[in-house]
Amino acid sequence: MNASGSIDEHTESEVLHTWTGKTRQWLVKRLPADKLLPEGQPSYVSSWIYVFGMGAIASLIYIIASGVVLSLNGPTWYHVSGLGHFVNSSHLWSVELFFIFMVVHLWGKYWMSAWRGGRVLTWITGVISFAVSIVAAFTGYLLQTNFDSQWIAFEAKDALNAVGIGAWFNVANLGQIFMWHIVLLPLAVGVIVALHVVLVRARGVVPPLEAASSDTQLTTPDEVSVGTLTEGSVR
């Protein structure tokens, strides 16, 4: 973290030798507790657009919870059980909400050009989580064990075969797709989303595009060196 004065306060002064110690030092430097779980946000974090990331996470919680209940009972349970059908419906609607919130979140972050100031990995992990979520949702549609999943399997095989992976990612192989959907892809989504959130906390919320060092909100509260800073060089 170059040019970031606040981080140095958290650096442990001693020189550590163990891998464990060095890792802790690195982690604590990058993500001190008050950054991981802050009580406040910069004054510019004041718009409804900021709630959609959290909305997507809340939806993901319901996707996982309803998915766990469906997993406990197997993929054909919901055809024969009223409760099962309701849980299946919750799984569907939490997925729809997840994508709705995620897309609005993505639009918002694009128009804020939220990758500025060393936040590019946050953007990239966000895009990866969107892409992986699409694959995860697709495998879910294959597991409905109804007409829709029969048709999607028949239709989707051509694109996968055309690029030569259909034999190994066989959409008509229920057992294989089951494992992708309930183990591999949820793990992938979970890990990437967690990384994304940690990156947001570590790097903070991107300041306004036209924020200038002369802004009163930047000058009044703290004794910060003003006037000498020149930001906004165009690349």
């Binding site: 004065g5 910069p42 500025r116 100031g117 936040r119 300041p207 924020a211 060092s213 909100q217 930047l218």
Partner: peptide, 10 residues
């Protein structure tokens, strides 16, 4: 620049 530094404002 402002985007890269930790926020020190309000």
């Amino acid at each position: 620049d402002i985007a890269s530094r930790a926020w020190t404002g309000k």
